[in-house]
Write a protein that binds this DNA or RNA. Structure first.
Lengths: 265, 265
DNA sequence: CGACACCTTGAAGAGGTTCAAGAAATGTGG
DNA sequence: CCACATTTCTTGAACCTCTTCAAGGTGTCG
């Protein structure tokens, strides 16, 4: 299978990913690369490729690019040209309106594809901000389109990635539209550990890369509510929370909160 | 340009769309068709096609299918095989979880494409229910994929449709995550009239095809709150409301509610 | 060490929900 | 075509969840 080193995600300390940053001239930094030996291949590429197809598909990855913590991979209004596969690091995407509204639309981690919002208007409609030092594979979209006309499995893969994002957002709508604060936070944490676990991390322990405010924005709650809800979970012995370090003690209880506990009758 | 007859949408009485239903043997009904003389072409097809491309693209529309009010175009868990272009009628899509949660994820009208959620798992993950008698063009997805490998403008179009859906859902997340009841309903109504207007209907008058409960589900509110908010808008002379018939008197006021009015400082 | 960002907690208040009752519209069957 | 059943909508009152405002604590970085 594949491994993601704990240093690069999940429990590592912030900032240590960019250990080779000194080799690079400027930020954003760019590096030539190949997918064939990337340990995230199974997350961001179609499966069961023939050797020659894999060769062709790596052509879409033009370069890699590093983004420092707090830096932007792209911004609202910016010309769209590429999708990005996250190699290391952690991002948030968010929309900000002129009148000051702000909504985090997602948190993305290694192996996930980011930038799909830009396709329709050929300009990005949200901001992608690194929550820790990150590195992405830059995949120019016209090359993706070109190649997916020839490699059927890539075409299918692109369609699935977009459909997956649509389905994910349906889930967020369900969360925002029908859940109470505890349910939202429980669902959020379960989703996070599940995705981290799929990357080789603990099922019970995680390091939040985002602030309470960012969690709140994503969940449609105020940061104080997020904080209080964490405290309640601690009180109920469902988890231990020390700042951004969370250890889940009772996964079942969390699942119950998300599933059964929504309407007592 | 194109026209959609008022009888088929927007202000017509329910049920009169299926005037030729008697000609059809069973329900769901199916009819052979062509896009070239469809007045919705500019909504659901790529623009600026050459004649031969148009010819090819109509091949994707296998048949049409009628869905009666209350009927399902597809259901959660059902095998995915086709996307659907709505010709007439009005749909809602919604997810229902085992534990009884329910979330309307969207309302779709003529010219819009429905079914994208099914691609990723090859099974649908939500229900599409007709809110009035409807007719759709059935577009088998493997034929779409096949053809979009050959017709670049179709490929691009498919990508844009999926990206558009992602961006739309970002907007819903903003609504659900950061707006108060009045703001949500105002945004919802503005969105509806804007889409109806793009189809040749009034900018100020609309007939809601959905119940207060369905609106509430979409907006993350209870039906009583929706009803009360309508009443408040009437009181404030922003609109007239008679059951499902809405006449907007002050569009600017609605826009102000959505934009400026969210945080007084 | 001090400045700054982030987190926690309390108390008061607002917005939305819940429960309940009744009115209006719609659909159905005789 | 009318009466009745059903669904949908409206409105009130009490309640509850989450927000707001405020203060203080914790952790981090230069």
């Amino acid at each position: 299978m594949f491994e993601v080193t704990p240093e690069s995600m999940g429990t590592g300390k912030r900032g240590e990913v960019a250990s080779d940053a000194g080799l690079q001239p400027i930020n954003p930094l760019t590096v030539k690369v190949a997918c064939s030996n990337c340990n995230l291949r199974e997350l961001c590429m179609p499966m069961g490729l023939k050797a020659d197809e894999l060769d062709r598909i790596q052509e879409v990855v033009a370069v890699r690019r590093k983004v420092k913590r707090g830096g932007r991979l792209y911004s609202n209004g910016e010309k769209f040209s590429s999708l990005f596969a996250i190699r290391t690091g952690f991002f948030k995407t968010c929309i900000t309106t002129e009148d000051g509204r702000n909504q985090v639309t997602g948190f993305q981690m290694a192996g996930e594809i980011i930038g799909l919002d830009g396709i329709v208007r050929e300009h990005h409609t949200c901001d992608a901000i690194a929550l820790e030092d990150a590195e992405v594979c830059v995949m120019p979209f016209d090359r993706i389109e070109e190649l997916s006309r020839e490699v059927v499995s890539l075409q299918r893969h692109v369609h699935k990635i977009m459909s997956r994002e649509i389905v994910r957002e349906h889930g967020v709508m369900l969360l925002l539209g029908s859940m109470r604060a505890e349910e939202r936070l429980a669902a959020f944490l379960l989703n996070l550990v599940q995705r981290l676990h799929a990357r080789g991390f603990s099922q019970s322990e995680l390091l939040l890369r985002m602030t309470r405010e960012e969690i709140g924005s994503y969940l449609g709650l105020k940061l104080e509510t997020v904080s209080r809800t964490f405290s309640k979970f601690v009180e109920d012995k469902i988890m231990e929370v020390k700042q951004r370090h969370v250890r889940i003690l009772d996964t079942e209880a969390l699942k119950l909160i998300v599933n059964n506990n929504h309407k007592p009758y």
